[in-house]
Design a protein around this nucleic acid. Structure first.
Lengths: 158, 158
DNA sequence: CCGATACAGTACTGAATCAGTCCGGTTTTG
DNA sequence: CAAAACCGGACTGATTCAGTACTGTATCGG
């Protein structure tokens, strides 16, 4: 299905929760678990990974919690996905690692794969956390020909 | 890693092979297996799925084989991916199926997820099989702001 | 008409990945 | 020092996936 892992999905939800609560100091894992209706253990695991990727900062001890490390408009969807699943690479060929593919040097479409990857990265890099809080501002997103994607305004398409 | 299945990767290779050999009548599975250096059984499986999705047409019997069902520029990468992995949906929320998510109606980011999905679909829908054969023409692909993606011409970025 | 060739469809299996959980440790505060 | 909260790693059951095998059906040549 070419889908994000479920944990990545949760991560987007949690980041949105934290971003919405900005200004109200720290959010605890317990707090976020209640708000997102997800199990605490799972939430902790996700927050931990987001922390290690530098998207969150934490405060330990009683009265501890998590905050965004950057402004919401500086955190792209691409970064959040990469935090949970590692660098975005739709195929083995599009990694910088060599020796994975037995076709290696003669592979006729390696370059193309990288181009496809770059296109997807470009799009995901353009959508930021602040866009997820304010959906209507997404009208700024345009397709490959520079035309605004038709469904943004109406909220739904197909 | 957010990656395509390996079989999907192979499918892109095979479709490229077939597209390149256009005009030279039918390509047999055996033939394509040899050219792509993939096991015949696997190649057959992939071609079968591409057939069922209407991207290929087949001829049975001795002297049978496969041909593209459409012109290369009418077959998008999105279609090929969908043929192998089903409809592109980065998250459960972005499917048309309901009842999968326990947050359902109150989920704060459902709309956004669909927007993200649509953005990715838009990009993948713009790249066609003919683009994969003629990499240099990909300079037509632009980012969300209408600017040409920087790495296309040079073949590589980052 | 018969057999060789190639597509068509299904079913199975071993491996790899993933979600989710648990447990023990460390830091801070009252 | 005890409670609250973060920190880190490790384990497990389930699910998914790649790959293979086997049987069936269609077409063509002789």
């Amino acid at each position: 299905m070419v889908r994000l892992g479920r944990l990545t999905d949760y991560a987007l939800v949690l980041m949105t929760c934290i971003a919405r609560g900005e200004g109200s100091s720290l959010r605890t894992a317990r707090d976020l678990a209640k708000e997102s209706k997800l199990p605490l253990a799972t939430v902790s695991k996700i927050l931990k990974e987001l922390l290690q990727s530098g998207l969150l900062t934490s405060q330990r001890g009683i009265h501890g919690g998590y905050v965004l490390a950057k402004n919401p408009h500086e955190i792209s969807v691409l970064e959040m996905i990469a935090a949970m699943e590692g660098p975005l690479a739709l195929t083995d060929c599009s990694t910088d690692v060599t020796g994975l593919c037995n076709l290696e040097s003669c592979c006729p479409i390696k370059t193309n794969q990288q181009i496809i990857n770059q296109a997807v990265r470009g799009v995901l890099g353009k959508v930021t956390l602040s866009d997820l809080i304010q959906p209507l501002h997404l009208t700024a997103i345009r397709d490959a020909n520079g035309k605004v994607l038709p469904m943004i305004a109406s909220g739904r398409v197909q």
